[in-house]
Design a protein around this nucleic acid. Sequence first.
DNA 1: TTGACTACCACACATTTGTGTGGTATGCTG
DNA 2: CAGCATACCACACAAATGTGTGGTAGTCAA
Lengths: 197, 197
Amino acid sequence: MAQPLTPKQKEVLRFIACSVSVQKMSPTIREIGRHFGFSSTGTVRDHLRALAAKGYLARARKKARAIELADAACGIPIIGRIAAGSPLEANENIEGFLRPEEAAPLADDVFALRVQGDSMSGAGIVDGDIVIVRRQKQARQGDIVVALVGGEATVKTLRKQGSRMWLVPHNKKYRPLSCSGSTVIAGKVISVVRRYV
Amino acid sequence: MAQPLTPKQKEVLRFIACSVSVQKMSPTIREIGRHFGFSSTGTVRDHLRALAAKGYLARARKKARAIELADAACGIPIIGRIAAGSPLEANENIEGFLRPEEAAPLADDVFALRVQGDSMSGAGIVDGDIVIVRRQKQARQGDIVVALVGGEATVKTLRKQGSRMWLVPHNKKYRPLSCSGSTVIAGKVISVVRRYV
DNA sequence: TTGACTACCACACATTTGTGTGGTATGCTG
DNA sequence: CAGCATACCACACAAATGTGTGGTAGTCAA
């Protein structure tokens, strides 16, 4: 899975990853060759074969621009626990890879909401954060949901007590809301993204 | 920019977006045609032309699988402020689009770190969160940084007082650390991602 | 009615693109 | 030394793919 690459192979993989993120499509064999000054398509194919054999990419046969990068090549390495003394660069600490689509999953029934106010600050959701919400009418006890209360959208935790439902803030300054007939659950918060300038 | 689409055009755009996210490459004209049962490539081309004219995608000429989705087609709509009474589905509330790469930017000098502990809970960074870090040795006053203190990585806010530098937690349970010679700044936190099960 | 836009079809054509075959040269390892 | 992997070349070929031309039919507004 994480077999070492030769410097040349690293270069080629890096070029492919850059192409994908800039042009939003994988390069063709000839585009790769042109970039490195290769005059033969066979050369590029050999490199792709080597990279595929080492698990850094997958290729669909006979298809144009069909290089698919593995997580190790296109994801951000997630470092879990740092053993005291070991450098952050060390590979052993890599717990997995965060793929862009994982952070902001694409789907038809997903939208994002910019959070206003501090009613959920106790749960780590603060003013300006973007919450990503899957549209659904139902939710379970403990889910963080977006609810429409009198036409206003709010982010709260859902609590059930018997047949009663509550929208609970995570900030002592605010009080739980009891769900009335006009309260509608718009969706469930599946992810939070915050960007710093 | 946000011109309305006909139902058929929506279908086509949706199919392309799905293909891109599943197969990680845009479909060919013939793949689109096959999916919809079109027997002519010209039909698909007409649809692509219409979608391009309305700003939902861009196409590179003569290139295979070269459909590039615009933000409106591949990003998650960010809803900023909800006017009381207006439904969440309304288009007027869309403030922008969150693209996957924006949430988890791809670059050579970026890594992610799973946060342990609650020392930054006051800043909305809680246990289990993933912080995305740009590798850099320097940082400015107020930046949230990852620092190596005695071989351990910690996330703190950087404060400067004269020539003195402090690593300040956001939780009253912990005390600021004065930066000593062995303290190294590993990078700056540029984004935080949290996923709920 | 005319003109637009949408939504399709058929077919031909030129490129783009991946693949296959067969080489050369270098360096490393058993 | 032979065997193997890396790192390149040249050239041919078939399949994949985007494009062009010229149609038909329906809807909708001026």
